[in-house]
């Protein structure tokens, strides 16, 4: 019996931690493929079992404990203390739990994740949240190319889930996206929402060239500046879409702080891409 803080104190004395802390034993430039850093695999495993999980160091198969120091066991909350920009596939296919990375992270973070939450306190390399099926991927820094896009060769990408990038994102953000929400507080590169099937992409910084190329359905919303749209987009009207208010409210509830209240503002609505189905839409915020 006791209060919540007493429980925490007792656990600390007993050496029981709420999260499992991973640290790279030695800095390396060799790529590490660590699909096994996943809360689903950690939650019921003892220290020894986590230690034995497989990772690829270059093309060599090794054990996780040989490359990382592991502090904790049997938890679905993983904390990675170092810069792991050469570690790929962290949180890949995870369905629940939480991963926090206190630094930069390598390619394919949160690839095909279906649930849970990943927070990257640094930058994420290319293909973060690729083929995401659910959950929340929050990148505090910048994201690389093809964030929230489809797997190579696939024509359907993100299906459910939320990706938030507080910095800038690279090329082909949300390409082939099918459902879900991607919000970028900074600028995005060319071809954002290319071949998009549905879903919502919100860009608060600069929307670069060729946004929504080949888009069938879905919405790209630009709150900042934007390059001229493709000629396959037709201007429709100046509108005040209610659903943008729902999206902004939801993002606010997740914890995004907006500089100003964007609810009820006016947007130019463009429909396209008429090269595809043409039922997609791009909203450009009208500055008053």
């Amino acid at each position: 019996m006791g209060c919540v803080s007493c429980v925490g104190f007792n656990q600390e004395i007993a050496g029981i931690k709420d999260d499992i802390v991973l640290r790279l034993k030695e800095p390396t430039t060799i790529p590490i493929e660590a699909e096994s850093i996943c809360p689903d695999l950690f939650v019921k495993r003892s220290y020894r079992e986590i230690y034995d999980l497989p990772v690829y160091y270059g093309r060599r198969k090794m054990r996780l404990g040989e490359l990382f120091s592991i502090d904790g066991e049997k938890s679905d909350f993983i904390t990675i203390e170092d810069d792991v920009s050469n570690v790929k596939k962290i949180g890949s296919k995870m369905t629940s739990g939480k991963i926090v990375v206190h630094g930069d992270v390598g390619r394919h973070v949160g690839a095909s994740m279906a649930g849970g939450e990943i927070v990257i306190r640094g930058n994420a390399a290319d293909k973060a949240g690729i083929n995401m099926q659910g959950g929340l991927l929050w990148i505090k820094g910048n994201a690389g190319h093809q964030t929230g896009s489809a797997l190579p060769g696939e024509n359907k990408g993100v299906n459910h889930g939320v990706i938030i990038v507080e910095g800038n994102a690279g090329l082909e953000l949300g390409a082939c996206m099918r459902r879900g929400i991607i919000a970028v507080l900074g600028d995005v590169g060319d071809f954002a929402g290319a071949r998009m099937i549905a879903g919502s992409i919100l860009v608060f910084g600069h929307l670069a060239k060729r946004a929504g190329a080949g888009m069938k359905r879905g919405s790209i919303i630009s709150f900042g500046s934007s390059e001229p749209l493709l000629p396959t987009y037709r201007y429709e009207a100046i509108v005040q879409p209610v659903f943008i208010g729902i999206l902004l409210k939801y993002l606010k509830e997740l914890g995004i702080v907006f500089e100003s209240d964007m609810t009820g503002k006016s947007y130019e609505r463009y429909s396209g891409d008429i090269n595809a189905l043409g039922k997609g839409e791009i909203f450009i915020h009208v500055k008053s």
């Binding site: 879900g180 919405s219 005040q240 879409p241 659903f243 999206l247 939801y250």
Partner: peptide
């Protein structure tokens, strides 16, 4: 046929075009 939907936080909202904008 010009209606569209948004799935936000596991709730589906339908957007129906109207003469003054859209009905959600």
């Amino acid at each position: 046929g010009f209606q569209s939907s948004k799935l936000i936080n596991n709730r589906r909202f339908w957007r129906i075009p109207m003469m003054d904008g859209e009905f959600v």
